[in-house]
């Protein structure tokens, strides 16, 4: 291979053809309310850790529905499960429970992948 001093740039495009993933279907089965999210951002706005970390539940839900869990899951790491987002959600989603379910659903998937 020749070193030209530049390479192909990675694409930032989301491919919706690849968005249908079994992990998400499993998550939607145990946590059907995830489908109710209308991306208002109340959860992210009131998050205790939003100023200090990357946590943004609106973005996590969005990226999971787009099949981009690689971008979504790391955002959850700073969540302290305080429950403030649950209080503000206008669609009444139990977001605290949802966060736990996401971790569970995708942890299982990650373990299976490793095997």
């Amino acid at each position: 291979m020749i070193n030209f001093g530049f390479t192909l740039s990675p694409s930032s495009r989301i491919d919706l053809d690849k968005a249908n993933k079994p992990d998400f279907s499993r998550l939607a089965e145990i946590e059907p309310d995830i489908l109710k999210c209308m991306a208002c951002g109340s959860c992210a706005a009131s998050c205790s850790t939003v100023n200090f970390g990357k946590m943004n539940l609106r973005k996590v839900i969005l990226m999971l529905t787009r099949g981009e869990e690689k971008d979504a899951l790391p955002l959850l790491e700073t969540c302290v499960l305080c429950g403030k987002c649950t209080m503000v959600c206008p669609r009444g989603i139990n977001t605290r429970h949802l966060i736990i379910s996401i971790s569970e659903a995708y942890k299982k998937a990650q373990k299976t992948e490793r095997k």
Binding site: F4, G5, F6, T7, L8, S9, S11
Partner: peptide, 14 residues
């Protein structure tokens, strides 16, 4: 600009 050439080529590649 050489540093940007990756963009150029990525478009062609697409």
């Amino acid at each position: 600009i050489k540093a940007n050439r990756g963009y150029s080529m990525s478009n062609t590649h697409k």
